[in-house]
């Protein structure tokens, strides 16, 4: 019960600070917008094949932009030794991890609210199956947030953190990208004979396994 309250307090702290400074959301959103523009120029030459690469563009944008968020996620905790102070409080490590991951998840979803409609607009995608489309985005983003938060915390003090983080997380996140692109392609009406629910269950399985794995590793790693 109390760890739920700790979770809420830490999350509220992060959201309040983010709301006032916007130093994660602003770079993330701007970066994703720039990516969309770059992709538009790179791929719009053949408008008839837009359905083939639209889903891929959505996922590459989400993956890249969420990396920007991961890089910044623990900056505030590092700057004044706040993480160690947080660890001294009665809050459990799992509450800290869950709150940070939820924060990252919310920031990324906010970025997606801005970017994904733009991609749909720019690439003139139609979404005949909005349910799986949103489901895949949310489940996939949760996976990105779990893995990203874990390694963001672990690499907090590393030199070259910005470069190392994607090197480490991208191979681990490949299943999310594979399943995400599949579901999104089906949701925008690509003629594939495949089972949407299988891929959604795959994403749920990934999220569940990695929720446990990242939580355990975080508790092991953040030990003073």
């Amino acid at each position: 019960m109390s760890s739920l309250r700790h979770f809420a307090v830490i999350l509220r702290k992060d959201l309040a600070m983010e709301f006032r400074t916007r130093d994660i959301l602003y770079p993330m959103a701007l970066f994703s917008l720039l990516l969309v523009v770059v992709f538009s120029f790179a791929f719009l030459s053949d408008p008839t094949r837009v359905r083939d690469y639209g889903p891929g563009i959505i996922w590459v944008t989400v993956l890249f932009a969420s990396t920007v968020g991961q890089n910044r996620l623990f900056d505030r905790e590092r700057e004044n030794g706040c993480l160690w102070a947080m660890l001294l409080t009665p809050a459990s490590r799992s509450a800290i991890f869950a709150a940070k991951a939820t924060g990252h998840f919310l920031f990324t979803v906010f970025m997606e609210l801005l970017t994904v409609p733009l991609i749909i607009l720019f690439f003139d995608l139609s979404v005949p199956r909005p349910g799986p489309f949103l489901g895949a985005l949310l489940l996939g983003t949760l996976g990105l947030s779990l893995v990203g938060t874990l390694f963001s915390a672990m690499l907090m003090n590393a030199r070259m953190k910005e470069v190392l983080l994607p090197l480490v997380t991208f191979p681990l996140l490949m299943p999310v990208v594979i399943a995400g692109v599949k579901v999104t392609s089906l949701a925008v009406g690509a003629p594939l004979a495949e089972d949407v629910s299988m891929w959604l269950r795959f994403l749920i399985g990934f999220d569940m396994i990695f929720a446990v794995a990242t939580l355990l590793l975080f508790e092991r790693m953040i030990r003073s």
């Binding site: 893995v147 190392l164 299943p175 396994i209």
Partner: peptide, 22 residues
């Protein structure tokens, strides 16, 4: 590059561990 201290070694070990389910 992540430092050769206890922490840097731990991050790499964490990656190896989480790599298996991935």
């Amino acid at each position: 590059f992540a430092g050769s201290d206890r922490f840097g070694r731990g991050v790499a070990a964490g990656l190896a561990v989480i790599g298996l389910p991935a």
